[in-house]
Amino acid sequence: MSAADACLLVENLFVTRDSATILRGLSLEVGCAERLIIAGPNGAGKTTLLKAILGLIPKAAGRVSVLGAEVGSREWLRGRRRVGYVNQESVQVDFPISGREVVEIGTCSLPLGSEEKALLIDQAMTTAGCAHLQAKMYARLSGGEKQKLSLARCLCQDPQLLLLDEPTSSLDPQSRGELMALLKSLNEARGLTVLMVSHDSQALNETGWRIERLEAGVFA
């Protein structure tokens, strides 16, 4: 699969931190509208892989190409918002911010007027099933509610690729099921490519998802 055809292309990626090699020559191809779970134990390098794809951490060697643009290039910088990202850390945020303001972050770099943005936010929150959380304080919501807001935030960006870091780790079984169903429906209805990393063993039982196992910085 060429870089132009693949939604995500990782070639021989090495990432180091504090002189330890976290990712060792990783290669991965993800086609458009694919659903992929990267499973693995804690410390396998799953979060590091996501951050390297997003350009949040530098790579020691190798190449990462997202939606045809090499990470770090000007083309990639301009089109960065086409990748939605749900990280682990923002679940712990206790800063005063409302549900709607979290979703509003997804409209940051959109060239739209305030009314258009407001409509986009409303639509995204309805799609993600969190319209009732607009005025609630984010820090006081449950893990499942926070994840729905994060998804709504990503939907505002109109992404082609969605990256999720351990989205089910703080969820009860019902919330987990709802989240997985929502991701599946977004994938099928919008052709959204979804890449999720998880150490949750139940994730391996999901149907319709491609599973890759990452251990000690390499795919098993």
């Binding site: 951050k51 997003l54 350009g55 949040l56 960065r80 918002r81 990748v83 939605g84 990202y85 990280n87 850390e89 923002s90 945020v93 800063f95 911010i97 303001e101 979290v102 509003e104 972050i105 997804g106 409209t107 940051c108 770099s109 935030r153 960006q157």
Partner: peptide
């Protein structure tokens, strides 16, 4: 919106463009 993005999460702000 950009300021609140940075205050919320610098990673998310970067990923949001």
């Amino acid at each position: 919106t950009r300021v609140s993005a940075v205050l919320f999460s610098r990673e998310i702000a970067f990923a949001s463009g």
